[in-house]
């Protein structure tokens, strides 16, 4: 969005989310799933930052950890200058007024026994955003904002289609007037024609209400459409972060390149070079040493097996703010290193 300012609304530092694996006779912790392993990034007020990656890369876990739906193992999360992890449960609940989330499956995240009116007024009541007598009006206004009719106000979730239910989820998030919304695969379950409607709605709302989005998705088409900046994750680590244009037109990490080349293009005349990776994503229980992508990377060397690459920028090749975690950005760019499939 053009309204992007440079103030950081959300700042995540060294965030770790480990889930213990219990085993043995005594149910002791035997290992951890390192779902998110030491990541840092910030989201500026008014922008959309997307987190992309494949299943198990930690993108949803990151979203949940920020909201403390799962308590993070370590790290810092600052929202509007406040340290979220230092808040009490009660304070955190209050804080969620400003920081909302919309999930993938709206049917699983709204109460099937409540009408739309109840769903929306409950959210407002909990966060105490409006005096009671003004809520009715606000509900009607919200329905209109998300493109639902006033006559649908007393209907139950099962009376709506998937796209409409997602609109209810959006209305609920908006009902408390948040500054930021985390969208966790919010359009993934929808058919394309409906997905486009919801994406356009999200964009319109951002313009009108000055919202900040953290948009979590596996769909790079959707991400290109909605984001200002994009962050790519692989096995719990950030491998690349950049403004949208740089990421799609000038990707630097071999994983980002592979991901982009793997998406089928809806145009049979496009001849593209497809990089096909060997094997699957390794398990996050025992992630590979060094660069986590080395087991599948066509450029990997001994150094990649031993040393974990830091996110870095090379000013000659990359724009400001574009960083990738690869030892060999320069060598790959110059052609000095050739892929070994």
């Amino acid at each position: 969005m053009t309204t992007t300012t440079d103030t950081e609304l959300l700042k995540v530092q060294n965030l770790k989310q480990y889930f213990p694996i219990k085993g043995g006779v005594f149910g002791r912790k035997v290992n951890d799933v390192k779902a998110v392993d030491d990541i840092s990034f910030e989201v500026k007020a008014g922008e959309t930052l997307s987190i992309v990656g494949e299943s198990g890369c930690g993108k949803s876990t990151t979203g949940r950890a920020i909201l403390r739906l799962d308590e993070p193992t370590a790290g810092q999360v600052e929202f509007g200058g406040k340290d979220l992890l230092a808040l009490s449960k009660k304070e955190m609940r209050k804080m969620r007024k400003n920081l909302q989330i919309i999930f993938q499956d709206p049917y699983a995240s709204i109460n099937p026994r409540q009408t739309v009116r109840q769903i929306l007024s409950e959210a407002m009541q909990i966060q105490d955003v409006l005096p009671k007598d003004k809520r009715e009006e606000r509900i009607k206004e919200l329905m209109k904002t998300v493109g639902l009719g006033e006559h649908q106000i007393d209907r139950f979730p099962h009376e709506f289609s998937g796209g409409q239910r997602q609109r209810i989820g959006i209305a609920r998030a908006l009902s408390v007037d948040p500054q930021m919304i985390i969208c966790d695969e919010s359009v993934s379950a929808l058919d394309v024609s409906i997905q486009a409607q919801v994406l356009n709605l999200l964009k319109k709302l951002q313009r009108e209400l000055d919202l900040t989005y953290l948009f979590i998705s596996h769909d790079l088409g959707v991400v290109r459409h909605i984001s200002d900046r994009v962050l790519v994750m692989y096995l719990g680590k950030i491998v690349e972060i950049a403004d949208k244009k740089s990421l799609f037109d000038n990707p630097k990490h071999p994983y980002t390149k592979t991901l982009l080349s793997a998406i089928p293009v809806p145009d049979p005349t496009v001849e593209k070079e497809q990089i096909i990776l060997k094997g699957d994503v390794p398990s996050p229980i025992d992630p590979p040493t060094g660069c986590r992508f080395h087991t599948r990377c066509p450029f990997a060397t001994d150094k990649c097996i031993q040393e974990t690459p830091e996110l870095r920028n090379n000013g000659d090749l990359m724009k400001d703010g574009h960083r990738a975690a690869c030892h060999y950005i320069e060598e790959i760019e110059s052609g000095e290193m050739q892929p070994n499939y």
Partner: peptide
């Protein structure tokens, strides 16, 4: 076709 967000 027109409602499909493209990555390319």
């Amino acid at each position: 076709l027109k409602s499909l967000p493209r990555h390319d």
